[in-house]
């Protein structure tokens, strides 16, 4: 069957909500896009363990410590599900990890921001996980089977992540003056980066049309960003916190919250490696990988030795 005919069949199948599996024929561009997207997602989960892991040793109550530990652990697990999904497309986990450590692979730039206070842990759960959920729920219906299945698992676990973050902030906002101020300060710093998690404006997003046609993407960046603001603004009001946007107001006619313009220059800078913590994130990850090499080697050596003895 000629490639052109294959492509037509493929596109018709996908447009009719058919699933693509690892052994199906797929256009090179589809495979490449998915490897890029899924591995970026996996890298984000792993790197994302750092800004929160930072507070594990200082969590201010044993209950919060247990919850945060379970959350950070989930993130490692999500990274694993996603690397496994990407591997079905013909790349190996080692290749992907090497690309991350070499700085040639991207991950969500939201994780390049620091977490100077405990309230940041609340803000990350509420806003960053909230935005992630908004991006991820549509992916559960993605055309690529292994990715869709991984996303279903991730989404089930992710909703606790958002709730625990909001719960932290509820407690802070009902607490001392210092705690309330801590919460407001965290919101001030995390609001705009969270909006930028949805990517640039649709008009500046070259891959979007093809990704939508191939059912990898379901909703546009701007649609999701608007939905996020609509959902989150009332939650901020409940907390008694002020969203740091002078233009934010509810538009009765449109039925949406009107909001201001993110600083796209900052977005581009952080994305290209010039954010506050980019270097630190990679350095930590590299150190863990390099320092763990002798352990992995030992496990492999033991396994080889014992495979021999059982075979004999």
């Amino acid at each position: 069957m000629a490639d052109r005919e294959r492509l037509e069949r493929f596109e018709a199948h996908v447009a009719a909500e058919g699933k693509v599996e690892s052994d199906s024929w797929m256009p090179d561009a589809y495979r490449k896009t998915l490897v890029r997207q899924i591995s970026q997602h996996a890298h984000s989960e792993i790197i994302g363990m750092q800004p929160e892991g930072n507070w594990l040793t200082r969590a201010p109550s044993l209950r919060r410590k247990a919850i945060l530990l379970a959350k950070v652990q989930d993130e490692a697990g999500h990274g694993l599900y996603l690397y496994a999904a990407a591997e079905t497309l013909g790349t190996s986990r080692d290749e992907m990890v090497d690309a991350l450590l070499a700085g040639t692979a991207k991950y969500s730039s939201i994780f390049n921001y620091p977490t100077p206070t405990w309230a940041d842990i609340g803000a990350i759960g509420w806003l960053v996980d909230g935005a992630a959920i908004m991006n991820q729920v549509p992916l559960c219906r993605c055309s690529y089977g292994p990715y869709a299945r991984a996303m279903k698992r991730v989404c089930k676990e992710e909703s606790f992540h958002q709730r625990q973050g909001f719960d932290i902030l509820v407690t802070l906002c009902r607490g001392t003056d210092e705690q309330r101020a801590m919460a407001q300060d965290a919101l001030n710093r995390w609001w705009w980066p969270s909006l930028m998690m949805f990517g640039p404006h649709d008009t500046d997003s070259p891959h979007s049309e093809q990704s939508m046609r191939w059912r990898i993407k379901r909703f546009s960046n701007d649609e999701l960003r608007q939905r996020f603001v609509d959902v989150t603004a009332p939650q901020a009001a409940f907390l008694g916190l002020r969203i740091p946007d002078d233009e934010l107001r509810y538009d009765e006619t449109a039925g949406h919250w009107h909001f201001g313009e993110p600083d796209w220059e900052e977005f581009r800078r952080v994305l290209s490696g010039d954010g506050p913590c980019n270097a630190e994130r990679l350095e930590r990850r590299t150190r863990a990988h390099v320092e763990g090499a002798w352990v992995r080697d030992a496990a492999a050596a033991y396994s080889a030795k014992h495979a021999e003895t059982t075979a004999a």
Binding site: G77, E87, A299, S303, H306
Partner: peptide, 24 residues
């Protein structure tokens, strides 16, 4: 089938799978 994991041998595979896939 719930997914896949990496491990050097069967014992570690079982433990890793238990840790990654059965926490809930």
């Amino acid at each position: 089938h719930v997914g896949s994991i990496h491990a050097t041998d069967a014992e570690m595979a079982l433990e890793n799978a238990r840790d990654v896939f059965t926490r809930r």
